[in-house]
Amino acid sequence: MNGQTPISIRNLSVFYGDLQVLKDVSLDIPANRITVIIGPSGCGKTTLLKSLNRLLDDTEGVRIRGQVVLDGEDIYAPRTEVTRIRKKMGLLSQRPQVLPMSIYENVAYGPRIHGLRARRDLDRRVEHYLQVAGLWDEVKDRLREPASVLSVGQQQRLCLARGLAVEPEIILGDEPTSALDPQSSQNVERRLAELKRDYTVVVVTHILRQARRVADYLAFLYLGELVEHGPAADVFAAPRDPRTRAYLTGEIS
């Protein structure tokens, strides 16, 4: 580790009405690593991820206690500008969510909103991030076509390019390969592995093998509680908590 922690979660609790979904979670996320959050479905993984870029605020009946510190700034402080927080993070959702516009416009959407207007700058940025996402060669001749004509795997890489185009520091992935075929999944995983040189990556998954393949740092959530976390190799080799062990061996899922 290089000692930097771009995101630091401190005593975070999240309630949906009376139901406590996250229980006092504290976690430092290391820079330029892939942090994988594992755990059975319905244990709060997605909630934890969404709390990082404040997408939970919009959900009805959600209460949040605790802090998430991003670059030394508490994102839940009243004065924090939410659009600025979100711009620092790119989100990949479970199913690719392409915007109802052309391939080009999907990538240009974010930069344009944030004030990039000049045609040449936009063109350059779109091309660059489509290349980073490994999609450029497949779409360069049909940038004006609606994004919905792409295959699901291509759509997910388009979403990746779109997220990167606002030049975030962090990439959040919410089971980003769950809707994809094995080949597309592999493609996305490989992109993420390349991206960690420049970005901090946080990925939620319930696929253990995927976690083994990509994780540098591992966090195990169980029933809203952060049971164990540490360098992936250590946790996989020698889990300290019996529940982690049970999950890793497939006794609970």
Partner: peptide
């Protein structure tokens, strides 16, 4: 909702999300 989230998570405001998405 996930489509709205996609736009919001790029840093778009509510209105921008409503109008464009």
């Amino acid at each position: 909702q996930a489509l709205r989230d996609a736009s919001l998570s790029l840093g778009a405001t509510r209105w921008e999300t409503t109008r464009h998405v």
